[in-house]
């Protein structure tokens, strides 16, 4: 019988009980809470924000945001509260300064280089207009539909 009891105990206990959070604020302030919550990382989860995480601790952190909002703190002051505890790790959106600047600049740089390369490698002297259909005397199977090309040519005659 000891065994028989064990199984029900295993199922009934040993779990973190989910705890209910505070009720939301009025619509306008709650929207701000949710927006800020999206930008703060849950301390006990795996890379989700405190607004997204179903974990109880995330709800406690979101309640803290509510509390700070009610106290009339600015967004930056609220972020600073969490950064003071967890460092920049707490920010879902890395700062556009310091070590994380590269994240923002790198892709833009690459984009610029890419567009530059495309610009360099395509011909600049705009060739006189010519229908695409004549341009490729392909003998291999057509990648372009010949009827479509014809439509284009027709269009041009108009």
């Amino acid at each position: 019988m000891i065994q028989a009891l064990l199984i029900s105990i295993v199922l009934a206990q040993g779990y973190a009980p989910p705890r209910q959070g505070q009720d939301p604020l009025d619509a306008e302030r709650e929207a701000r809470v949710q927006r800020i919550g999206k930008l703060l990382r849950c301390a006990v989860c795996q890379g989700v924000s405190i607004a997204d995480s179903p974990a109880s601790m995330a709800r406690a952190q979101l309640d803290k945001v509510r509390e700070l909002v009610v106290e009339g703190k600015s967004d930056d002051e609220i972020f600073d509260y969490f950064v003071a505890r967890y460092g920049e790790w707490a920010l879902m959106e890395p700062r556009k300064s310091g070590v994380t600047l590269g994240l923002w600049v790198g892709p833009l740089l690459l984009l610029a280089i890419g567009i530059f390369l495309v610009w360099m490698n395509t011909s600049k002297n705009a060739a006189p207009a010519q229908p695409a259909v004549v341009a490729s005397p392909e003998t291999e199977k057509p990648a372009e539909d010949e009827y479509l090309a014809k439509v284009r040519a027709d269009l041009e005659k108009q």
Binding site: R19, Q22, S56, M57, A60, Q61, D63
Partner: peptide, 10 residues
């Protein structure tokens, strides 16, 4: 409400 935990950065 886990307020102490949040304050301490648990």
């Amino acid at each position: 409400k886990s307020t102490i935990a949040v304050d301490f950065g648990v």
